[in-house]
């Protein structure tokens, strides 16, 4: 159990900087999810915490101790890899016992800890099998088991569920969350899936091209995005943006207004803030997504209750929303007003 602190953490490959100074303070036992699009530097960040990637500048501290130059094995962490990285020539038991054996743990204790973990992860019947004789979900569990038997201070996960099918992903997501709660271990979890991020995180870090755009509780980030990127990335379908000058004469050049699809109401043509033409509607049962085209051909999406009448294709409608639902972003994409 430990705190993790990243201070002005940077990473360069040759002359290219890919992480541009990230600061995060992680409390003991907290579940932090790092989310962002492909290539934004999530894995690189995690691997610097693990010690698999050298830190170019800044500091990583685990439990207050600077670990920049500490080898991975001396950091008291465990990591679950996207491809699980199980040892293919060892049985499930040996995979889980490997770290303990190296640490010189007495045999009876190894057997006990492995069987505890196996019980927790429902792997008891598979201890003698090789990884290639397991299903994807079982392999994933073995990787988890290997991480928990060592009782590390910090868990690191790099997209551990991305190789599983949708249903298993939901199930494992729940199990990971429960496991982390039960063990009370600090966790750093990387994903590009915002649903995973929203459901797992105590706090989430939204990464954008090597910068942590916003750090906060999932609902807080959802409700009050600090940048246009966060507003666009978190939430599905994403936030609609329109040029601010369209609705607010006097707004700075390049400023944009953002409105989430669920905050938009349909009103009679000629009324509301914007006029739009219905392109097509996607009824999803509980809700309906309506895709619209604005006067300047920009696309706009609104989301309404599944029971509300679906506007006809080609129909002209007005769009309205409450003032406090709209978000103003400056030309630099930073949030200008609450």
């Amino acid at each position: 159990m430990a705190t993790v602190t990243l201070e002005n953490l940077r990473k360069s490959y040759g002359p290219t900087e890919v992480i541009h100074g990230v600061d995060i303070d992680i409390a003991d036992g907290e579940f932090i999810v790092i989310v962002g699009p492909s290539g934004c530097g999530k894995s690189t960040l995690l691997r610097m915490v693990a010690g698999l990637e050298r830190v170019s500048a800044g500091e990583v501290r685990i439990d207050g101790t600077r670990v920049n130059d500490v080898e991975p094995m001396d950091r008291n962490i465990a990591m679950v890899f996207q491809n699980y990285a199980l040892y293919p020539h060892m049985s499930v038991f040996e995979n889980m016992a490997y770290g303990l054996k190296i640490a010189g743990t007495p045999k009876p204790e190894i057997a006990e800890r492995v069987s505890d973990a196996a019980r927790l992860l429902q792997l008891e019947d598979y201890l003698g099998r090789r990884p290639r004789e397991l299903s994807g979900g079982q392999r994933q569990r073995v990787a988890m088991g290997r991480a928990i038997v060592r009782k590390p201070a910090v868990f690191l996960f790099d997209e551990p569920l991305s190789n599983l099918d949708a249903k298993l992903r939901v199930q494992m997501r729940l199990e990971i969350k429960q496991l982390q709660r039960r063990l009370g271990v600090t966790a750093l979890y990387v994903t590009h899936d915002q649903v995973e991020a929203m459901t797992l995180a105590d706090r989430m870090v939204v990464m954008n091209a090597g910068v942590a755009d916003q750090i906060g509780a999932p609902l807080e980030v959802y409700a009050r995005p600090q940048t246009a990127f966060v507003a666009g990335f978190i939430g599905s379908p994403p936030t609609n943006f329109v040029a601010a000058q369209l609705l607010r004469p006097g707004a700075p050049d390049g400023a944009r207004l953002g409105v989430r699809p669920e905050h938009v109401r349909v009103v009679s043509p000629g009324e509301g803030a914007l006029q739009a033409r219905v392109m097509y509607a996607e009824p999803l049962g509980a809700e309906t997504l309506v895709h619209l085209k604005l006067a300047d051909d920009a696309l706009f999406t609104l989301r309404q209750d599944g029971t509300a009448p679906v506007p006809e294709e080609g129909a002209e409608i007005g769009l309205a929303w409450d003032d406090d639902a709209q978000m103003l972003f400056g030309p630099d994409d930073r949030r200008l007003q609450g």
Binding site: E71, I77, M79, Q82, L86, I102, R146
Partner: peptide, 24 residues
């Protein structure tokens, strides 16, 4: 990643070579 997993599991270079690399 298998080598990295072993490193995180506590195996130093020679142990990794003996227990992971050479068998594989």
């Amino acid at each position: 990643s298998v080598i990295e997993a072993a490193a995180i599991d506590g195996a130093r270079f020679w142990t990794r070579f003996r227990t992971i690399v050479f068998p594989l």
